[in-house]
Amino acid sequence: MTLNFKKIAGLFMGALAAFTICTSVSASKTKIADVSQYQGNINWSKASKDLKYAIIRVQHGDTGDADFRIDSKRNINASGAKKYGVPFGQYGYAEFSSVADAKKEAKDFYNRSNTSARFYVLDNEHRKGKGSEQSYVNAWLSQMRKLTNKPLIYYSYDNYVAVHKINYSKFDGSWIANYSKKPTASADLWQYTSKGRVSGISGNVDLSKAINSSVVDSWFKATSADTAKPTYYTSVPANQTITTTRHIYEYKDANFKSRITKLASGKSLPVKAITRSNSGAYRFQLTNGNFVTANKAFVSD
């Protein structure tokens, strides 16, 4: 058999080049970046070549805060990351000043988040209230546990944790910032720079690296389905009033067969009784005789 050396060599070199390109692209998808409206219009097609994971901001503070704003790029960034296969979580910069405020901020953050987010982050670095900062953190966590079964992550910077003695052990993971050296506080994910670079993003971007890779990977591999088991009020509140925490509907019947109207979040409703549907779900009967859900993810007392 006569061998065509040039042909074989050409095939070998072609295969080697293809392998090199493939492994190079794979190796480049190592960065973990958190992004917000401050990164402007991200080219997610290009960014996806660099990014292994992304963490996307949803809001800064909440209604009532002087500097409150919903991140203008939150939905665009979530859609871009999803389209180009970059798993992502979402975070909210907290400015709560009381336990009640922390609960409200958690509810609003959850409602504004994208359903494809793999996990949710409490960005706790702004001390505002006069009470215990730990009690606010605990209230936020407790409220979010009622709303979702996705991982809940605590974020802050090294010094803030130390000064305020924050215990975040009940969260599903921790993400700590310290740009000079590895954090002294317990951290699964380390935000190590605010001057990183990512293809498709103009200017600087925060970058992080995993300290505990198995834990961090578990956040991003969490299912995108949100199947938290509903918890219900089983009795009428003492003040006989509930408040909607999300958009809900009012019905003529406890089985929710005949819808009347859509109720906005934050609406106060007088109630007179608690009842159950044929399937066993609890409902509040309003003083006007109609019915709404008693699910704690949608109403509060």
Rank of each mutant, 00 (worst) to 15 (best):
D172T: 08
W175P: 02
V161C: 10
Y168A: 15
S174A: 15
L141Q: 07
K181P: 00
V121C: 06
Y160T: 08
D123N: 13
V99L: 10
K150E: 03
S116A: 14
Y110P: 01
A102D: 07
S186C: 00
V137E: 07
K170V: 03
Q90I: 01
Y179N: 13
F119W: 06
K150I: 02
S116G: 00
F109S: 10
N138H: 02
A177I: 10
F109A: 10
K103P: 02
S169N: 14
W140S: 12
K181F: 09
Q191W: 06
A117T: 04
V161Q: 12
G85T: 01
A94G: 02
H126R: 09
T193I: 06
I166F: 09
I166Y: 08
A117R: 08
G131E: 11
S180E: 12
W140R: 11
S194C: 06
S174G: 13
L189A: 09
G129V: 08
F119E: 05
W140V: 05
P183K: 15
Y155D: 11
D108E: 08
F96H: 00
K181M: 12
E133G: 12
F109K: 09
D158L: 06
S156H: 03
S194V: 02
K104F: 09
S156G: 06
K182N: 02
K104Q: 11
K103H: 00
Y179V: 12
K104H: 08
I166T: 06
D188Y: 10
F96L: 01
S169H: 04
V161R: 02
A177P: 03
Y192A: 07
D172M: 03
Y155K: 13
A94R: 05
A106I: 10
K182P: 00
I166W: 06
K150N: 08
P151T: 11
S156A: 14
P183A: 14
W190G: 13
K170S: 15
V121Q: 06
V99I: 15
A117P: 04
H164Y: 15
V163S: 11
Y120K: 08
A102M: 10
S135N: 13
F119P: 14
K181Y: 13
N149D: 14
N149C: 07
F119D: 09
N124C: 12
T193C: 11
K165Y: 00
Q134L: 01
T115A: 12
S156L: 03
Y168D: 15
S174T: 15
